[in-house]
Design a protein around this nucleic acid. Sequence first.
DNA 1: TTGTAGGCGTTATCAT
DNA 2: ATGATAACGCCTACAA
Lengths: 343, 343
Amino acid sequence: MAVRLKDVADRAGVSVSAVSNILSGYSKSRIKPETQERVRQVALEMGYRPSAVARALVRRQTDTLGVVLPPTSQAPLRDPFFSAVLEGVLQAATTRGRDTMVFTAHPTSSTQERLGKLCDGRCDGLIVLYQPSENDILTELLNLSVPFVLTSDWREDPRLFCVDVEHHESMRAMTEYLIGLGHRRLALLSSNIGYYVGPRIAGYQEALTRQGIPADPRFLISDLIPWDPSTVLRAVAALMMLPIDQRPTALLCTNDSLAAIVISALSRVGLRVPEDISVTGFNDDSSAVRQHPSLTTIAQPYETIGGCAIDLVQTQLDDPATPPQRLRLPTKLVIRESTAPAK
Amino acid sequence: MAVRLKDVADRAGVSVSAVSNILSGYSKSRIKPETQERVRQVALEMGYRPSAVARALVRRQTDTLGVVLPPTSQAPLRDPFFSAVLEGVLQAATTRGRDTMVFTAHPTSSTQERLGKLCDGRCDGLIVLYQPSENDILTELLNLSVPFVLTSDWREDPRLFCVDVEHHESMRAMTEYLIGLGHRRLALLSSNIGYYVGPRIAGYQEALTRQGIPADPRFLISDLIPWDPSTVLRAVAALMMLPIDQRPTALLCTNDSLAAIVISALSRVGLRVPEDISVTGFNDDSSAVRQHPSLTTIAQPYETIGGCAIDLVQTQLDDPATPPQRLRLPTKLVIRESTAPAK
DNA sequence: TTGTAGGCGTTATCAT
DNA sequence: ATGATAACGCCTACAA
């Protein structure tokens, strides 16, 4: 069917190993240049393409990485955050000449079913784009010999390789930016799930403390259900019912999607952003620029995250005894239209 | 390193072929049930996992599909439309027990470089998520023996397998819906690129004709540059400068991203959606629900598109002589907040 | 400088 | 009912 090494060898009148050597580019000096040229020519003419599968079998490595999307969500890529992370990993993989398999799972599928695909030799290593719970693939993965790295995670487990951003510092920087704009009543709106909400809230609180602004407990709302806009609407409405001199002038949200809902809720109660109130997000996913007003937010270095994760997989491949590493990358404060000086 | 078939066979005291047969589940009746049970047990204990690579080599098939993202865009997944299509393909592939490789490319990479990855046997077939231009991989792909299917495409080329939606009919339905709401002055805003703009515009025009509404040339704006909001802002401002009794009461956009920019532009000139003016999108990507007001739009059946594409690949695999098929799937009009009856 | 041959882990075709 | 063995296409010692 397809052109094989042997076909090229026969046609060029040399042995398979010669062709293999030449085409692998490994042994430049070993084979006579004119032979090399001829063989290359023949290979090209015949449209020869080495079989990745056969090569993988003998090399015991596929140059392919697996990217694991969260099994919890029906449609992870509908969340612009996961799209952004995936995009970053894909870009980084392409740059490094690696292929990428993307794994999703139906919420109904068992751990074993999922694992089957993840470690049957198709991938050299895995990049897990979420925080697996204990009863998820995590423990099994640790027992297997597949190197893997978690992104967007910061577990205490010392056996794990992770790449994450500085949630605490980022939120502190954002809060300080708002304080610098003259805001003194700042509320934090957070979803009720996500490993990152803890550090982000702490960052917010630290900034307040540092600037000597007393923390108003009414301004810390951390039980929002992200996929239920009505809870957000209620919370925002409650805040805005406060007397005008007690009402927050800035709302910090723990992610961009939430910020979008918040802005929408504000407009429903007749407030304009940023004229009446400032709003900020976190992540700088694709929705941040597109929404109106465009969002002041914290940009995650998605491609760097992907690159680090891939490199950490490679590190484990090169030396399986490497002790786990935890990387924490800096972010960037991106100022757009949703924030303005306090009046 | 890893547990092989032979290891299991040795431990269980049977031959490799027996184990293979048992574990493949192919021959239930051929091997003594008690042996089967024992072998299964041993395999489980040893944590045996068949090597996908070895299996692929002998079967000449990997059960893996390649999904090709557009090479033109720096970050295709930042576009919620591509995220949605990819999501649909991934879901459909998971349902069918297939793995998925996702290919991106740096805009600088050559066609040959890209092709190398696409047809080295790693994938059984390809799903191309964009409309490749002539000098892109298309012609090469046709010469190779890799089955492939284009989504979101509707070329005249009779050699191609495509899955697409009914652009014309969808836009006509949307236009008629607005007319049904009492709108009589409807403007169409379209980006200046995309194979789909032609049919979408035609659908709009047909609806007007059918309803006996004369087409006002000022209301057909098809030269917008999607990534440059300022052109959109200008166009919207120009429309809104018209005397109030000549000004459109509804704006149809050819995709959701554009609609988002349009809504933002409207708000800048002080108009509210949908109270003052109705706006519609197309695609129902993730931005449609999240934005405020949420968007009345045309929903593409992403998972069905993915499923059909995969099935068409399989069809070609089963019978390489199958004549090319072109599928055109229906869409759904999703009514949300951005439209209201004309006053 | 080039060729030969063994093996990668599995499946499938035969024998037994 | 089971087992030996030849592919699958490639890489790589080692031999020539």
